[in-house]
C-alpha cells in the first residue's frame, strides 16, 4: 500500500471513478466506495456495505443532493435508502448510518484517510 502521509492510503486513479458516480476500491480487507461528485467538484468516500440489508453495493448507487443546503447523498441501488455523504447518516431511516472517510486528490491519484 502506497501511503502519502501516515494514514492517507492510495485508493485508485482519478480516471478510475466515473464522473458524478462511484466505484469500489479494496484497501486491505475493506471495501470502500469512492464518489467523484464532478458537478460539485468534490470527492467523498464511505463504506461500500449498505447497512440495511448488508449488501456490498453503495458504490453502484446514484449520487445527488437534497434540501436547501444541498446535502450530498448516495442512494443504495437495492431499496433506495439514501445516506448523507458528509455525515454518513441515513436520510430515509434514522436507525441506519455508514462510515465516511476523508478523500484527497494529488497528481491524478485518489487518497483516502482510514
Amino acid at each position: 500500500m502506497e501511503t502519502l502521509i501516515d494514514n492517507w492510503v492510495l485508493a485508485c486513479l482519478v480516471d478510475d471513478v466515473p464522473e458524478n458516480g462511484g466505484a469500489c476500491v479494496k484497501l486491505g480487507d475493506e471495501q470502500i466506495a469512492v464518489f467523484n461528485f464532478t458537478r460539485r467538484g468534490e470527492w467523498f468516500a464511505t463504506q461500500n456495505l449498505c447497512p440495511h440489508k448488508q449488501q456490498m453495493v453503495l458504490s453502484r448507487g446514484m449520487i445527488g443532493s437534497t434540501g436547501e443546503s444541498c446535502e450530498p447523498k448516495v442512494a443504495c441501488p437495492f431499496h433506495k435508502n439514501t445516506f448523507s455523504l458528509l455525515s454518513g447518516q441515513c436520510l430515509t431511516n434514522e436507525e441506519l448510518s455508514i462510515k465516511t472517510y476523508g478523500v484527497r486528490i494529488e497528481d491524478g491519484k485518489v487518497f483516502i484517510s482510514l
Binding site: F37, R39, R40, G61, M62, I63, G64, S65, T66, C70, P72, K73, A75, K80, T82
Partner: peptide, 10 residues
C-alpha cells in the same frame, strides 16, 4: 436546480 437525485436521474 441542485445536483439531481436518484429520482430525476433515471
Amino acid at each position: 436546480k441542485g445536483d439531481g437525485c436518484e429520482t430525476c436521474k433515471p
